[in-house]
Simulated assay, not measured.
Amino acid sequence: MSQPATAALTEQEQQQLVRQIGRAMLPAVAQGWQRVRAEYRAAGRHIEVDLAFAGPDGQWRQARPPMDVVQLFGRLRQGMYSTDRGTWLSAIYTIEAPSAFEVEFNAEDEPRWRNAPPVIGFQDELRTYPRSDDRIPDWLRQRVGLPPRQEPVDLRVAHVYDGRDEAGTPLVNRNTVDPRLVESVLSYLEAAPVVLAARDLDVDEFAPGERDVPLNFRTDGVWVWAGAVPHYLRKHGLPPEPDLVTHIVGRDYRLPEVDEQTRDRAAALITGA
């Protein structure tokens, strides 16, 4: 993706440019104006600018926007770019006589186009002003053919067993996994990406003296489980939580891609970060 050629403007430079735009608008309107309104809309190289003014009678009249206004708005749009949120797509600049003014910037909602840009215009927008995926609004995703934004789901941690008795022995009160499904469930559990891992092995709580339980955690983007879950299923036939088994079967044992952000969320959930 290409980056805007103009360096980011400071807050003071932005204010100076805003005042320059206002001064550049005024020569295009008739004497005796009471209000002036300019609207700038852009997607990539598609640009629309409307300029209107109202006199003492309150009636709005269209005026031709000076080229300086168009260019200064473009400079301001470039200078307000940030890598996470991109830049604004439209701006409305109003002036009230004699000198009060206000500017509203919109970076999320689709502008009210006179003529909607072609797909290449929206693609060019994201190439020129790339933004983080979670800051691309749904309407823009649809315009450029991106898949709908996936909202983060609440991750669920699988319990290895159901508690302990007074002596500290693990308690299990679950239905066994259908023997015909065990290998497929194990393949799913053991193939999911690891989000946390230690080099050491833990003690097998169902085989005193044996230390062979993997100290790791995996996730499929919905559930998070310890390495002990598949270990105890394979070694002792201890079934995972029924809801986890149902989830795996419902996915037909197919693991989805798990993005880095979801892996980080899973690790934070385990560590309490």
Rank of each mutant, 00 (worst) to 15 (best):
G74E: 11
A24C: 07
H159A: 15
G209K: 11
R112L: 14
P111R: 08
H46T: 13
W88M: 11
V185T: 02
R37F: 08
P179F: 03
P214Y: 08
R35P: 03
Q150M: 13
N175L: 09
F53V: 00
D264Y: 02
E241R: 06
V153W: 00
V203C: 03
R112C: 05
W113P: 05
V249K: 07
T219F: 13
V18E: 14
D124R: 10
Q31P: 05
V29Q: 07
E257K: 11
N216C: 14
R156N: 09
V18H: 08
I120L: 12
D243K: 10
V144W: 08
L215W: 09
A52K: 07
R254C: 06
G55Y: 09
D162K: 09
V103M: 15
T83F: 11
D204C: 14
F122T: 03
I120K: 08
P240M: 13
D220T: 02
P118W: 10
F206P: 01
I92G: 06
R35G: 04
V185R: 02
G79F: 00
D57F: 10
A8L: 11
Q71W: 04
L196S: 10
V119S: 01
R174Y: 02
R114N: 12
V182K: 10
F101I: 12
L146G: 04
I248V: 14
V69H: 00
G58N: 10
V229E: 00
D165R: 04
P111V: 13
R135S: 09
R35S: 09
E205S: 05
Y93F: 15
Y253D: 02
P193Y: 05
L189I: 04
R112F: 05
D154K: 14
Q59S: 12
N173C: 01
E39A: 07
A91F: 01
P111E: 11
R265K: 06
M1K: 03
F101Q: 13
V29I: 14
G79N: 04
N106R: 13
G86A: 12
M25E: 06
L72K: 12
M1I: 08
D133N: 12
A273T: 12
D165T: 02
D212Y: 06
